[in-house]
Nucleic acid binder design. Sequence first.
DNA 1: CAAACGTGGGC
DNA 2: TGCCCAAGTTT
Length: 365
Amino acid sequence: MTNEILKTIEEMDRQTFREDLIGWFENEMRDLPWRKDQDPYKVWVSEIMLQQTRVDTVIPYFTRFLDKFPTIEALATADEDKVLKAWEGLGYYSRVRNLQSAVKEVHEKYNGKVPDQPEAISSLKGVGPYTAGAILSIAYGKPEPAVDGNVMRVLSRILLIWEDIAKTSSRKTFESAVRSLISHENPSYFNQALMELGALICTPTSPSCLLCPVREHCQAFNTGMQNELPVKSKKKKQRSVEMVAVVLRNDKNQLLIRKRPETGLLANLWEFPNTEVGLEFRSEKEQFEDYFKEKYQVEATLDDMVGRIEHVFSHLIWNIHVFTGQLKGPIQESSKLKLVTLEEIEQYAFPVSHQKILKEVVGKI
DNA sequence: CAAACGTGGGC
DNA sequence: TGCCCAAGTTT
């Protein structure tokens, strides 16, 4: 933290700032399902779900997830396929695999109680500096910073911090600022209020400064700079990937699906067999009949292309050329390769891209 | 430290 | 349409 920022903080009326902020939060906080109690497990689940994900999106997932896995014990002993199914459509699937792994550790090593020490909780898989601070403050009332994108935006404005919040290194500046601002009387509400303010008032574009409970403390508002902050560098464009996917059906109306590798993109989700291709081969079906013969020792004849799916990820774009086809002979099923009916397929977690494929072809087979 | 890692919504 | 965003973590 620079001397400039330190000076700004020291010149603030910090006690009034805390009271204004927390007082506003007590009146205006949204009624959210993870705010019904302070159960560390529920706080934990909500924080993982909320990573890079909107509140409105999370609400139904949170309710269903807690219904299916109400306790540490329930999640620790659940089948991963069921857990992934409960997460289907939420994205960033390593979040939930890390969560279950960490919950197992808590179940076995901490007798099912979420640790309340920074070092212990930070060592759990998927619990980074933000999530550790959120759980420690919200569930355990400890005065630890929980710096997310909201907090960086809000504090960049209040304290006139010109660091690029897209840089990994910037978080430390904001953590230091929170440590010197945080209410020791109510760290939970202080942290939540900062985030709530960012979500409801101090928004990325056109912040509602006239409704802001702490505008008198805000250096950006006082100097008319609220629209210049935060400084955030652009992310680069996605690269495109051409691929072919095939919905293969046998004479019993079963479809062939496979499990993705246990690391990397969409790890351990299920999908229709597919392969990356060059632009020039995307509609040459004979190539893919050969591919399936080699990869699965299965005889398949493909129909003409039935559709094309574009799916945009944060870092790449899949352009999927979809074929249907018939499976001619038997196939050796395994834990990663299955034949399933249209009814059974609902138990398997698919990425949204492959849900689109199923929807595209389901009327045509 | 930059890149990988999903998805749906807003403008 | 294309770009940005939304309560980040891991490698």
